[in-house]
């Protein structure tokens, strides 16, 4: 799980091209959107695509998305529960 969280943080910083923050500075429980990391709805779109691309996990609807996108912690839990074997 720790490795997965590290991977998610790296993807967020690298692929969403966040500036002024390193993966290590992102707290596991910090909110991803608005007052937390400051991501917006356009980032949410890219994050859905990135989760599918890197982990083979599809976020299907708003209930799933809302639960998964709270923090790195919840996203890691969501991915680990659904990740196909070998990805």
């Amino acid at each position: 799980m720790e490795e997965l969280k590290k991977q998610i943080k790296e993807i967020i910083v690298r692929d969403l091209k966040l500036q002024g923050i390193t993966p290590e500075e992102i707290k596991d429980n910090a909110p991803l959107f608005e007052e937390g990391l400051g991501l917006d709805s356009l980032d949410a779109v890219e994050l859905v695509v990135l989760v599918q691309k890197h982990f083979g996990v599809q976020i299907e609807d708003m209930d799933e998305g809302q639960a998964a996108f709270r923090s790195v912690e919840t996203l890691a839990k969501f991915i680990s529960e659904r990740r196909p074997a070998g990805v």
């Binding site: 949410a44 695509v49 998305g65």
Partner: peptide, 18 residues
């Protein structure tokens, strides 16, 4: 897909396009 839902329905719309 309701646009007044979470993130304006964009998460569901993305999944549908995928």
């Amino acid at each position: 897909i309701k646009s007044d839902g979470f993130m304006g329905g964009l998460v569901e719309a993305t999944a549908a396009l995928q």
